[in-house]
Nucleic acid binder design. Structure first.
Length: 429
RNA sequence: GUGAGCGUAGCUCAGUGGUAGAGCCCCGGAUUGUGGCUCCGGUGGUCGUGGGUUCGAUCCCCAUCGCUCACCCCA
């Protein structure tokens, strides 16, 4: 325990016991994205530091104190990506594909933020993100929300999450509102706690969800961003709400919902759970109509979301039933005097049945020990290939679950028997 | 970055100022080529690390590292 080299704080392993859940999440997400015509893009984990400063915002927590930044050997400042959108937009501008059609992209991979680890928060964590470019219509916002709803639904998490939405309007409207809000708050500065005073400088909108009762009272009378929206943004938001209603997607409007990154505009949304402690946001996204232009591309409207895989998997783990796929082999081959023959047979079986998970006992040993291993492997059956069986051209198929019956099967019939077994266990996969 | 709680076997945890235990796991055995159940036996810990107090520290004190949760922030 206290020995040897340990993993770096906040960088954790996904052990074999948990990886099936990850695989299931990834598969469902990928399939869903593809069913909405999103295509995968694979992006580097390292980008120039400047990219994140310009996109996420200089004064955000992420840029100010959470980035893994280092100097390359040639003196360039590089950063382990703290999120995926910036790199995605950078790639789009660099390769000039953002304005050819309306690209829909997704990516999956590790992100890095130097924060204090806690439940649902690691320094290396994994996100699935998707971005759609070139479409300003609110229909796209709603389709994206519907897509995330579908993912969560397919994973059986519909009852564990709720949707909150808000509109941040245009940067201009937001700036005007911000000034008004700050002016208002300065009048009531005496009623603000330290936390809120600090936010006054950094992100005054955040003060809306202060937990302090006195602050709450002040905020009752504060100017609301939603009331200050420009006409177009207001109409856009109204359409989003209307369409969500028509799709039967439930949501609540949360005027205090603010995305942490500077580049968001108009629609923002967040899927929240109460089952994961303090870090309840599982999936969040919104429009960023200004970012592409900011990063040197032709001004292009865009929308995206990011989903935290650790948090999603944590929810799945809570929900996981007994029939969960655990990666155990279907069959375990017990080997007698001729290990070479066992290997040959095993290869032949894998040729015939690509879906078969077959573990062959390495070398040969006593049947007792091998059967014990077979049992512990979690396999449904043991395939016993001893001297008697080899001589007779058969394989003993012994059930390791339930009664434990055993029967001799002719070699030629074995693929068929195992195929039936696969069908039987497919449910659990 | 701030605060709180916790670090004893692979895991879950007892424990006492006098150089450590249980359950589970793992390994072996209960006669010949048959797992699970039962019984018997066994491996395994410099009690997170470094200092201090003490005749003596796993236990008390300090520091440090790590874990966990919360704040902040966010996926």
């Amino acid at each position: 325990m206290g020995k040897g080299i340990q993993s770096v704080r906040g960088f954790s392993d996904v052990l074999p016991a948990e990886s099936p859940l990850w695989q299931r999440a990834e598969t469902v997400i990928r399939d869903t994205l593809e069913s909405y015509a999103y295509r995968e893009i694979r992006l580097p984990v390292v980008e120039r530091t400047e990219l994140f400063k310009r996109s996420i915002g200089e004064v955000t927590d992420i840029v100010e104190k959470e980035m893994y930044t280092f100097e390359d050997r040639n003196g360039d400042s590089l950063t382990l990506r703290p999120e995926g959108t910036a790199g995605c937009v950078r790639a789009g501008v660099e390769h000039g594909f953002l304005n050819r059609g309306e690209p829909r992209l997704w990516y999956m991979g590790p992100m890095f933020r130097h924060e204090r680890p806690q439940r649902g928060r690691l320094r290396q964590f994994h996100q699935v993100g998707a971005e759609a470019f070139g479409v300003a219509a609110p229909e796209l916002d709603v389709e994206m929300i519907a897509m995330t709803a579908r993912m969560l639904g397919r994973l059986g998490l519909a009852d564990d999450v709720r949707l909150e939405i808000n509109s941040l309007g245009t940067p201009e409207a937001r700036a005007v509102h911000r000034e008004r809000l700050v002016a208002y708050l300065r009048e009531h500065i005496d009623s603000l706690d330290d936390d809120s005073r600090r936010r006054l400088e950094t992100n005054p909108l955040r003060i809306f969800d202060s937990k302090d009762a006195g602050v709450q009272a002040v905020m009752e009378g504060a100017p609301r961003l939603l009331d200050a929206l420009d006409e177009e943004s207001a109409a856009h938001f109204a359409t989003v709400r209307n369409l969500l209603d028509r799709l039967g997607i439930e949501y609540t409007v949360n005027p205090a919902l603010v995305r942490g990154l500077d580049y968001y505009t108009r629609t923002v949304f967040e899927w929240i759970t109460d089952r994961l402690g303090a870090q309840g946001t599982v999936c969040a996204g919104g429009r960023f109509d200004g970012l592409v232009g900011q990063l040197g591309g032709r001004p292009t409207p865009a929308i995206g979301f990011a989903l935290g895989l650790e948090r999603l998997v944590a929810l799945l783990a809570e929900r996981a039933g007994s029939g969960e796929f655990d990666g155990a082999p279907h069959a375990y081959m017990v080997v007698g005097a001729d290990p070479g023959e066992a290997l040959r047979l095993a290869e032949a079986l894998r040729d015939r049945l690509p879906g078969l998970r077959l573990e062959v006992h390495p070398g040969s040993a006593g049947f007792k020990g091998q059967l014990k291993r077979a049992d512990r492997s979690g396999a449904a059956v043991a395939l016993i290939l001893g001297e008697e069986e080899v001589a007779a051209g058969r394989v003993a198929v012994k059930s390791l679950r339930g009664e434990g019956g055993q029967r001799a099967v002719a070699r030629d019939d074995l693929p068929e028997v195992l195929a039936a077994l696969l069908v039987e266990t497919r449910r659990a996969d």
